[in-house]
C-alpha cells in the first residue's frame, strides 16, 4: 500500500471509502444486533401506558387496618394453642399462627414508623375441640382474604398491593384447607365471601 502514488484528492477519497465500508459494516452490526436480540428474547417491547407508583404514603391507613386485623388473627390461633389438641392439629394451628404473625411483621415493616400500635382483637374465642372450631376458622380466613381484597381497591402502591395479594393467596389456601378438614361442601370450600 502506497498512499503517495495518488494525488491528494484520490487519497482522501480512497481512505474515506475504506473507512466508510468499515464503518458501514460496524454500523450494520450495531443496527442488526437489537433486532436479532429482539426476536430471540422478546416478541415485543414491554412498557406500561400508565405506571402506578411503587409506594404511596396514602396507603398507610389501609395497611394499618390490615395490620390490626392480622394481629387479631394471631391472637385467635395463639388462644387455640392453649386448647387440648392432638400433635398434628397443634402443628396446623401453630403454622397458621406463624403465617399470620409473618403478615403482621411484613405489614408493620412495610408501613414503618407509621405503623399502628393497636394490638387488635381476637374475633373468635376458642372453645371445644379442633373439629368444632373449624367452621369459625374457615369464616375467619375467608373474612381476612375478603377484607384484604377490599383494601386492594384503594391501595395505590404496587409494592403494597403485591404484598397484600401474596397474603390473600395463602389465606385463601387456609380457608379451603380448613373447610376441607371440616368436610364442608365443595362449593363452600371454593367460595369466597362476596361483599
Amino acid at each position: 500500500m502506497d498512499i503517495h502514488s495518488h494525488n491528494t484528492t484520490e487519497t482522501a477519497t480512497d481512505m474515506s471509502r475504506r473507512q466508510m465500508i468499515l464503518a458501514a459494516l460496524t454500523g450494520g452490526v450495531v443496527l442488526a444486533t437489537p433486532a436479532l436480540l429482539g426476536t430471540q428474547v422478546l416478541a415485543a417491547e414491554s412498557s406500561s401506558t400508565s405506571t402506578p407508583p411503587k409506594r404511596s404514603a396514602d396507603d398507610a391507613a389501609g395497611l394499618n387496618a390490615a395490620l390490626v386485623a392480622e394481629r387479631g388473627h394471631v391472637l385467635v390461633y395463639a388462644a387455640m394453642e392453649t386448647v387440648n389438641l392432638r400433635e398434628d392439629e397443634r402443628a396446623v394451628v401453630v403454622a397458621m399462627r406463624e403465617h399470620h404473625q409473618a403478615y403482621v411483621d411484613a405489614l408493620k415493616g412495610y408501613v414503618g414508623s407509621a405503623a399502628t400500635t393497636d394490638a387488635g382483637d381476637a374475633s373468635v374465642t376458642p372453645s371445644g375441640n379442633f373439629e368444632s372450631m373449624l367452621p369459625a376458622l374457615v369464616k375467619l380466613e375467608k373474612a381476612a382474604a375478603a377484607s384484604h381484597t377490599d383494601a386492594l381497591r384503594v391501595i395505590k402502591g404496587t409494592d403494597a398491593a403485591a404484598l397484600v395479594a401474596s397474603i390473600i393467596t395463602i389465606e385463601a389456601h387456609h380457608s379451603a384447607a380448613l373447610a376441607t378438614l371440616a368436610e364442608l361442601p365443595l362449593d363452600v370450600v371454593t367460595a369466597g365471601i362476596t361483599r
Binding site: T149, T169, E171, A172, H173, A176, V189, T190, A191, G192
Partner: peptide, 8 residues
Amino acid sequence: AQEARHAT
C-alpha cells in the same frame, strides 16, 4: 383466591 382454593 378462588384458583388458590381450587389448588387446595
